[in-house]
Amino acid sequence: MTNPATRPPCYGVVLAAGSGSRLGRGPKALLTKSNGETLLNSAVQALLLGGCDEIVVVLGAEAQRVAAHLGDVGVKILINDRWSTGMGSSFALGMAAVPSGAGALVALVDQPGMDAELVRRLISAHRPGRITAAGYRQGTEPLRRGHPVLFAPEHTQPAAAAAAGDAGARDYLAAHRGLIDLVDCSDLDTGSDVDTVLDLHLLGEH
């Protein structure tokens, strides 16, 4: 566990560039939860209230329209002109904005159950030099790795360099399994994201 007084800065990186083509409702960042909050604003607030020092948001599809919904939140907005090539380019762009010496907590905009308590738990459990990932289980199944994922400073740029296509950090994480600490967050969320119409119930729709 990292002492809050001595830990390096933690940047929250929200990947929100996709068009939501499989869902057919426009960018998923603008989907609204049952409380009327967009997924993008929900993710940003979770990272801010959960302990991230700065927030980077990576946009792509309909970037200007999506950015307009953020208002005056004080986040750094990056626009990925290559968003259609897959999540890898957005991941690399967002991680490149994290300064040397800072860690990066990477979150997906379409995970509606992520909240400040979950983010706070990951940051609190993080150990120097490690990669900390939220873990989720169903019943008696083993923990499965999900999001968010917190990278210690020494992993941010190597992970960005390894990103390609739609894999994001997948290849880097697979190559560094021994450095990953899974933190059980099953009591806070299922780790599910909104991909298709069948997932809309995750937003609280009825």
Results as ranks from 00 to 15, higher is better:
D189P: 06
G168T: 07
P9C: 14
Y172I: 09
V13H: 09
I79A: 03
H147Y: 14
D171A: 14
L202S: 11
E154W: 00
H201G: 09
A175W: 03
L203E: 02
L118V: 09
Q138D: 12
V56C: 01
L15W: 03
R137V: 03
M87P: 06
T85W: 14
A107P: 07
R127Y: 05
A29H: 04
T85R: 15
K76C: 01
L173F: 14
A16K: 02
D72Y: 04
L108S: 12
M87Q: 15
T156Q: 10
D110S: 13
G71D: 08
A67F: 06
A5C: 05
A61N: 11
D72K: 11
A175P: 00
P112R: 08
S192K: 08
F91Y: 15
A167L: 15
G36P: 01
Y172A: 08
V119S: 04
P9H: 10
H155L: 00
L15Q: 04
H155G: 06
L143S: 08
S34V: 15
R145W: 07
C52R: 11
Q138M: 13
P99I: 12
Q64T: 13
R121D: 09
D72N: 13
D171S: 06
T132E: 12
V13G: 04
S90E: 07
G129K: 01
A161V: 03
I131S: 08
P153E: 05
G101D: 12
R82P: 01
L122P: 03
D181G: 07
D72P: 01
L23T: 02
S19T: 11
L70Y: 00
A167Q: 15
L93V: 09
I77W: 02
A17E: 15
A92E: 05
A97Q: 13
L143M: 05
D110F: 01
R137C: 10
A152R: 11
V73F: 06
G18W: 02
A163H: 01
P153Y: 00
R65C: 11
H126Q: 14
S84Y: 04
P27G: 02
E54K: 14
N3E: 11
F91T: 15
P112D: 02
V149E: 09
A63C: 00
L203F: 04
A67T: 11
P128Y: 06
G129F: 00
G24E: 00
L200G: 07
R65Y: 08
A134L: 08
D187S: 13
V106F: 10
A107W: 00
H176N: 11
S100R: 11
H147T: 12
G146T: 04
M95I: 02
P9Q: 10
A159F: 08
L30F: 09
N41P: 05
I77C: 05
C10E: 06
L182G: 10
E117M: 13
M114I: 15
H69V: 10
A164K: 14
A68G: 08
L23E: 07
C185E: 02
E62Y: 06
L179R: 06
G204E: 01
S124V: 09
T190W: 11
L31C: 08
R170Y: 02
V57D: 01
